[in-house]
């Protein structure tokens, strides 16, 4: 019974990874692609580590796998944020279908100093 559940979990995780990769191919610009990579990708690989934690059934291996999951959930948003910021500061144009751009004109220089809405 547990094996069937774990098998389904593993296949679901692999499908999420595949969806992240398809998103990387299909979405129009780097900012939207980042959504696919940082969410679906992290979730897929994290789910695989959770599968290991359940499958092992030993506390030392499970704790290591869950520590790995916590680590990915902490670092994935940080790298996405850094990359999006660097891409915007470097002047990579958003997709032409972007409806609204509140960031426009708020960067003061190439060092990434950012003014807020008030001034």
């Amino acid at each position: 019974m547990l094996d069937i559940f774990l098998g389904c979990l593993l296949i679901a995780a692999a499908i999420f990874n595949l969806i992240a990769a398809i998103g990387l191919l299909r979405l129009p610009d780097v900012y939207t692609r980042m959504h696919a990579a940082s969410k679906a990708g992290t979730f897929g690989s994290g789910l695989m580590l959770v599968t290991i934690a359940i499958h092992a059934g030993e506390i030392n291996i499970a704790s290591r796998a869950l520590a790995g999951v916590a680590f990915f959930l902490l670092t994935a948003p940080i790298s996405a944020h850094l990359l999006a910021r660097a891409a915007y500061v470097a002047g990579i144009e958003p997709w032409s279908g972007t409806v609204r751009d509140d960031l426009k004109g708020h960067y003061k220089d190439k060092q990434g100093h950012l003014s807020s809405d008030d001034d």
Partner: peptide, 19 residues
């Protein structure tokens, strides 16, 4: 960043606005 459809890009220097 890890919630539906949103991704935080940057915080302004005076910590008042999140983009």
């Amino acid at each position: 960043t890890l919630t539906p459809g949103t991704l935080s890009v940057d915080v302004s220097d005076d910590n008042k606005t999140l983009y």
